[in-house]
Design a protein around this nucleic acid. Structure first.
Length: 460
DNA sequence: GTAGGGTTAG
């Protein structure tokens, strides 16, 4: 009597085999086609084996379709308790998607019991959202469920805390891992947490520790170490790392090359930065161009930075908002006020980049540096974003440069409200007083600074 | 079946 209904089993097996076969070169079109074929053969999407392999295939795509994945998952829900595997796969897809919060929302519905693969994608979602509170709750929950001793969970935690700026919490997780339980990703996540939060000392300490327990660095390691060297201005150490990079063949790694461009540019070795850029050839990315543009502008080669930008446009590369910061920065350091405004307009018109506070800060610098300090002030009070301390500091700098006492006092008042006790601001204001010959005020200011510093830190 | 990277105004 089973003759009347053809068995769907061979079709299911065939489709699963096809999905697995295409994993070598996954494609959305192939997945949809195989899915449709299964449906035609009478295998429903809710079949757990089909759904599992379909989701796994979707997760392997470069940009997995989140809605499709959630739709497949929802077909499984009416059929009894959900297996953790398909849910974890969708969590992973959601975590890496433009909407990481979907992962947290799915988790909140408690559709399946968590297992060893549940927390890494959830923690990744928190890291991308900078959702520290939710990440801490998941940390506690993973601990309660007994998953916090897993290296994958621990590495995700180190990354999460580092991404949220809590490098000390990251280090606490790392420190409590058994030394033998750490792998290369653990070390790299720890190094990156320190590097990304401006702790070059700690990066180098952990790096030596890592070499001491015989872990060979890879590209990720090198990027963090080079970032630390750049921040330190540790050119000699950076060069040694560069030699290592060439020795072990990491020169092909664009992230490493970009970190080298940045290192050399920050250390003033513009020719080395240029050479790395040249050697990258077709491996150059927008970040490589941007790093060199910013590096050239910062070292007084504004004209060349702008030429490089033109070349970049001719190569049809799309600048990012950071590229445009570099371009505007180059204009202000060369006194090219009109060009700066033209680039500012083109940024919106040609590339759809709406100005961020950094761009507006460049415009203030552009006007102020050129001596048009009153215009710079008008720009600040009418610009579409709330001026921050850096903007007022920029204005104070141009006031000192061009002896504008009244506006300088205005900027100083804003700075006292927004960022009190910033020692560099005392220097700028006292430069201004000195420039206009108000030596008595220079001395008063010096005493105030010492008093403020003592109040801020009684041990200093 | 799981985790990690580079460029930003003073």
């Amino acid at each position: 009597m089973s003759e009347a209904i053809p068995s769907t089993r061979p079709a299911l097996r065939h489709c699963v085999a096809l999905l697995r076969l295409h994993l070598a070169a996954p494609s959305l079109a192939a997945a949809k086609q195989i899915h449709a074929r299964a449906l035609r053969a009478g295998v429903p999407t809710s079949h757990p084996l089909l759904a599992k392999h379909l989701l796994f295939h979707l997760a392997a795509l470069r940009a997995p379709p989140l809605r499709y994945a959630v739709a497949v998952l929802s077909r499984l829900l009416p059929h009894g308790p959900l297996d953790p595997f398909p849910l974890n796969t969708v969590l992973r897809i959601a975590a890496g998607s433009p909407r990481p919060r979907v992962a947290l929302e799915l988790h909140r519905r408690r559709l399946a019991l968590p297992d060893t693969h549940t927390y890494p994608p959830l923690l990744q979602a928190c890291a991308r959202l900078l959702a520290l509170r939710e990440g801490e709750c998941l940390h506690a929950e993973a601990a309660k469920n007994g998953f916090v001793t897993l290296v994958f969970v621990q590495n995700s935690l180190v990354h999460l805390y580092g991404a949220c700026g809590l490098f000390e919490s990251a280090h606490k997780v790392f420190d409590e891992m058994p030394v033998r339980g750490r792998n290369l990703v653990s070390w790299n996540s720890m190094l990156n947490s320190f590097a990304a939060n401006g702790r070059p000392n700690e990066v180098l300490t952990v790096f030596w520790e890592m070499l001491g327990v015989d872990f060979a660095p890879d590209g990720f390691t090198i990027v963090s170490v080079l970032t630390a060297c750049a921040e330190f201005g540790a050119l000699a150490l950076g060069r040694r790392v560069h030699v290592y990079v060439e020795k072990v063949g990491l020169v092909e790694n664009s992230h490493v090359s970009n970190a080298l461009i940045d290192l050399y540019a920050k250390c003033g070795s513009v020719n080395d930065a240029r050479r790395i850029f040249e050697e990258m050839g077709l491996g150059r990315t927008v970040v490589s161009w941007t790093s060199l543009i910013v590096g050239l502008a910062a070292n007084g080669f504004g004209k060349e930075a702008l030429e490089l930008f033109s070349l970049m446009e001719r190569e049809k590369l799309v600048p990012t908002e950071i590229t445009m910061v570099g371009v505007l920065y180059a204009c202000s350091h060369c006194g090219l006020v009109d060009d700066g405004f033209r680039y500012f307009d083109r940024m919106k018109e040609d590339y759809g980049i709406s100005p961020r506070i950094e761009h507006l800060g460049c415009m203030v610098d552009l006007l102020g540096r050129a001596g048009r300090v009153e215009e710079a002030y008008d720009y600040i009070i009418t610009m579409p974003l709330e001026p921050n301390a850096v903007v007022w500091r920029t204005l104070l700098g141009s006031c000192a440069m061009h002896k504008k006492l009244e506006l300088g006092k205005v900027a100083w008042e804003r700075l006292v409200e927004l960022d009190p006790g910033h020692s560099g601001d005392y220097v700028l204001l006292s430069n201004l007083y000195a420039a206009v010959g108000m030596w008595a005020d220079v001395h008063v200011l010096r005493k105030t600074m010492v008093k403020d510093r003592v109040r801020k830190n009684p041990w200093a």
